[in-house]
Design a binder for these strands. Structure first.
Lengths: 331, 331
DNA sequence: TACGTTCCTGAAAACCTTTTCGGCACGGCT
DNA sequence: AGCCGTGCCGAAAAGGTTTTCAGGAACGTA
């Protein structure tokens, strides 16, 4: 099962066998053919440890995530896994469970396995501590940016997403647009709200209800806020929810109040979380953060940086609006 | 950064340095101390590739999943990751996207990386093709069993889960219990139904509505089936739903019909999918498949089998009932 | 002093591959 | 005939570690 066996079967030296299998030019075509045949006959596959030891490339990367159960890591992880493909690169998955010292442990383990690079996926879209600048491999931060601006971070453009949602509502002819969103301590909530307000201002509109409704990332808050909103501003004709969960709560109350969606009130969510949007009544128009794409690009950037050098700063990824039946033009 | 550097700094040979760091007995205490000091001073961490090359143990395992986005792989993956810990073992994550040839590719890559073992996580609870018996490393199938009974598979006990749910409803004093569930081609749906019917028979009860309602794993089906059920059997006092999604649909219709949950009708779901059960009105009693535990045990079994040998057959894992407000004793 | 023990240390082989470089054979040229 | 160039192949080193085994020192005993 080793190269030596292949070489013996083909009647050549290991050196020649190696060159034959790796497409090196200094080997006669007929010899190469014999080696290839021997290799496939023995079902030979090279020991990547030995390869890595000598080439100083392992063809592995570490994926350091902080919460696997969180729904944001997964699409990014899939995108990255996808981009690396099965060809050359394998991915070490490490979940730090949000624990800093576990993260250091994982980091240490990954480095001693000589990974070629690292992708760090945060749990919340707010910035997280840098792993440090003195690592022997390139590092890319995804979703949650590093707090060190010299690192390279890829994040979702929340402000753009908020603008996108409101823009769509305006194009649907809505004029009394409210915004119900989650925890105000989340940068993402602030950014989405800023984008929404910006687009409204551009149109000369005020936010319906007089303010952005910050609260929690839950259906219950979506329900509660909607009731308060309807009391203060009964003629609202569109609600932009800061998450699909909140949007579900919003829909629930509108349904109870017999306010037709989308004819009377249009609703836009955020996240494009399939289980929520597909089952909603009616199916929910929402902003998709394009996380798979983000993961894919992270992988590509990392791949390009291996051996070379990495950029720095925070790169924002635009989301995209996915329209379903919860929004429609007025009449 | 290599062992040679450590040895040089400590004034010993690499052999002695290796033995000192690995706790081998044939080294004087003072010498060991010097080596340890040198190692920590240089922040030395051994090259696991070289170690693996010589010890024939890489301390890595492959996690071969068929659908990452599926919600079932993730908890299992977390349990496994958890059990391996950061100490010795790292996990290669490979997602085959349900594609058979991609799976073969990944398998080949993992073997050439000399993983010490494999965990295969299926997408559906039905059986899947075996990877074969002639692999050089132990393999454990999780969630979806292998179709070869000589392999070792760890799966969730769906029949037990169905029994558990109905048992709880009976203890709550319910007598007219219905079962609305998903796609009849899923073994899991059949098993849960069998468990439910078995427990009912044991109590001398018939299923309310006269039959198990098979359909789809969606809220919409939950709503539709509930309407039909209420028409055929208006005095139903409990509904066991085959998934939390379906249960959400059930709750929705009961809410519309002003049938109080749990006083008038009790509802039990399946999966304990947090986003759905926590946000439900009222929060949903449900069966938790204990998938993290399953993943954890899979990892432990695999770890034990490395070097040794593995059992075979299908091992079932009991679920557990998580009670919330959607069920309560009658009066 | 000579010898056997015990304890510790280091040289070297091994794991498997890649890559460099020297060498061999052969043909063509002067 | 002697020389050079070209094309192909193999010996050997390298990568970093573990493990075996031989040897040296110190010590006690005869």
């Amino acid at each position: 099962m080793t190269l030596r066996d292949v070489a013996r079967l083909a009647g050549v030296s290991v050196a020649t066998a190696s060159k034959a299998l790796n497409g090196q030019p200094q080997v006669r075509a007929s010899t190469r053919e014999r080696v290839m045949q021997a290799a496939s006959q023995l079902d030979f596959s090279p020991n990547t440890l030995a390869q890595g030891l000598i080439t100083q490339r392992t063809g592995t990367v570490g994926l350091l995530t902080s919460d696997l159960e969180g729904r944001f890591s997964i699409p990014i992880l899939m995108g990255a896994e996808d981009a690396f493909g099965t060809d050359q690169t394998s991915v070490f998955l490490c979940d730090a469970r949000g624990d800093n010292i576990r993260e250091r442990h994982h980091l240490r383990a990954l480095l001693s396995r000589r990974v070629d690079g690292l992708i760090v996926v945060g749990a919340r879209p707010d910035s997280r501590p840098s792993l440090g600048r003195d690592l022997p491999v390139p590092v890319i931060y995804a979703y949650a940016p590093s707090d060190d601006p010299r690192d390279l971070s890829l994040v979702s453009d929340n402000e753009g997403g908020g603008r996108l949602a409101v823009d769509h509502l305006i194009r649907c002819g809505r004029r009394r647009i409210a915004h119900i969103t989650g925890d105000a301590t989340y940068g993402a909530a602030q950014d989405r709200a800023r984008g929404a307000l910006g687009r409204l201002a551009q149109e000369g509109l005020e936010i319906a209800g007089g303010e952005v409704w910050f609260g929690m990332w839950s259906e219950a808050w979506g329900r509660g806020a909607t009731r308060m909103l309807l009391e203060r501003c009964p003629d609202v004709d569109a609600i932009f929810a800061g998450s699909d969960e909140i949007a579900r709560g919003v829909l629930d109350v509108l349904h109870e109040e017999r306010l037709d969606v989308p004819r009377r009130v249009a609703v836009v969510g955020y996240d494009n979380w399939n289980i929520l949007v597909a089952n909603a009544r009616p199916p929910l128009t929402t902003v998709d953060m394009n996380l798979e794409e983000l993961g894919r690009v992270a992988a590509q950037r990392l791949f390009a940086a291996i051996g070379g050098t990495l950029g720095s700063g925070i790169e924002k990824f635009p989301g995209k609006l996915v329209t379903r039946e919860s929004t429609a033009p007025l009449r």
